[in-house]
């Protein structure tokens, strides 16, 4: 069997092996490529940054462990950014697998900034029924979530003396692994006129561009690259992230080398497969002509 037929009939386990190697290697030996930022992510960053200190930000972290590598770094960076600006954070999830991840993030980042639950932030927890929950929040946050994740009544919390509905929040960010962005746009952001951004998995990012162009989303962050860009912006503006806050920000940056390597591998393998495909085609044609 010659090279061309070998490539065209390559066992997929060999491709799997190459991918595995290319993911693991850069994680062990980081190259630290510089990361450029895109306008989509810059506009999320500047929107959060432009809010007056102490604004209310509603964060919907609608993902579960399966998309943790892509979206959890964004949650960390966004929380850090909000707390850096003393924003009040209302965080919740529409995904049953989400609470444990959010709890981890909010408790860790909250502790680093000395923020207390109920005053500076509230983790509302999980409620089933996407649109039903978001619709409920536009009427009353404490009515939809009578208790927070830790089972404390929300109506008593200082944070909810000022804010009652989604309308009272200054910004919404949906960190979504699924199709919840549309729900937030249709039931919260658009009718209540609260500006909104979305961070989603790289796969679904392309799907939200129509909303981005129509101005219904201020910005889009796609996958780990988006998170890495946000980290870079954060580190540029707030230098203390570079030193003390390394545990909070910069997780996505580490993953970018591996992603670069795998993308490059896939591109090269597609090109190789196509060259072989052409050679094989040409051979066939010649054979046919000879016969």
């Amino acid at each position: 069997m010659d090279f061309v037929t070998l490539i065209l009939n390559l066992d997929r386990k060999i491709i799997f092996g190459c991918v595995a190697l290319l993911v693991v290697w850069p994680l062990l030996v980081p190259i630290q490529m510089p990361i450029g930022t895109t306008p989509e992510v810059r506009s999320i960053f500047s929107a959060i940054d432009a809010l007056p200190n102490g604004s209310d930000v509603m964060i919907a972290a609608d993902y579960d462990p399966s998309s943790k590598p892509e979206l959890q770094p964004f949650t960390y960076s966004l929380l850090a950014h909000c707390f850096e600006k003393d924003h009040k954070v209302h965080i919740l999830t529409l995904w049953p697998g989400g609470p444990a991840l959010i709890q981890q993030a909010i408790e860790e980042v909250g502790a680093q900034y000395g923020k207390s639950s109920g005053t500076d932030y509230c983790f509302l927890g999980y409620k089933p029924g996407n649109a039903a929950v978001v619709g409920g929040l536009t009427n009353s946050i404490t009515g939809t979530y009578p208790t927070d994740f830790y089972n404390r009544p929300t109506a008593n919390m200082p944070i909810y003396q000022r804010v009652q509905r989604v309308k009272d929040c200054d910004y919404i960010v949906d960190i979504a692994a699924g199709a919840t962005v549309e729900v937030w746009i249709a039931f919260a952001s658009a009718p209540e006129n609260v500006p909104m951004s979305a961070a989603c998995t790289a796969v679904s990012a392309a799907g939200y561009y129509p909303y981005y162009q129509a101005g219904q989303l201020d910005g889009i962050s796609g996958g780990m690259k988006g998170s890495a860009e946000y980290d870079v912006l954060l580190m540029d503006k707030y230098p203390n992230f570079k030193n003390g806050g390394a545990r909070i920000a910069g997780n996505a940056v580490k993953g970018m080398d591996a992603q670069s390597a795998v993308h490059l591998f896939i591109v090269l393998s597609i090109i190789l497969a196509n060259i072989c495909y052409f050679i094989a085609n040409k051979r066939q044609r010649e054979e046919r002509r000879n016969a």
């Binding site: 109920g118 008593n156 919390m157 200082p158 003396q161 000022r162 009652q164």
Partner: peptide, 9 residues
């Protein structure tokens, strides 16, 4: 213990 209500809207 209800003193958490700072103000009521």
């Amino acid at each position: 213990g209800l003193e958490q209500f700072a103000s009521i809207p």
